[in-house]
């Protein structure tokens, strides 16, 4: 595992910072234009969730560079109220941000691996991975 870098999310502006750092790392890993754009969109979504629902948190990036696989791991962590019903949030058509956000199902589609751990009152950790093909 490579050096880990994080962006703190407090203001809406920080979403752009997270996208920028994520895209730079994705480029270094070797992702093409479409995947870069997808990764950036996923980062937006994760960072916006933190900004809107938790108030603050961070998005961290790991370039995965192992013998037979390369990729990018993104972890979004907050200490917000947590997600009440993860299954419901993962359902298509259930978007709390007024239907404009791709929501978590969108993030899942944009990435290859997806995992959520959420505890009520303690916070949420979302881990996603995109593999380089």
């Amino acid at each position: 595992m490579d050096f880990q870098s994080c962006v703190n999310i407090k203001k809406e502006w920080d979403i752009v910072g997270a996208r920028q750092l994520g895209r730079d790392i994705a480029k270094k890993v070797g992702f093409g234009n479409v995947d870069q754009a997808r990764i950036a969109t996923a980062i937006s979504e994760l960072a916006r969730n933190i900004y809107l629902y938790a108030g603050s948190g961070k998005v961290c990036f790991d370039a995965i560079d192992e013998l037979n696989e390369k990729g990018l791991r993104i972890v979004a962590i907050d200490e917000g109220p947590g997600i009440q019903d993860v299954s419901q949030v993962m359902e298509d058509g259930f978007s709390t941000s007024g239907g404009l956000g791709a929501g978590l199902p969108g993030v899942k589609r944009l990435m290859d691996e997806f995992d959520v751990i959420s505890r009520q009152g303690e916070g949420t950790e979302i881990k996603v991975v995109k593999w380089l093909r």
């Binding site: 754009a37 997808r38 950036a40 969109t41 298509d92 791709a102 199902p105 969108g106 589609r109 944009l110």
Partner: peptide, 9 residues
């Protein structure tokens, strides 16, 4: 990209 997502949804 977002249109693509909307399409997949």
């Amino acid at each position: 990209i977002s249109y693509g997502l909307a399409y997949q949804e």
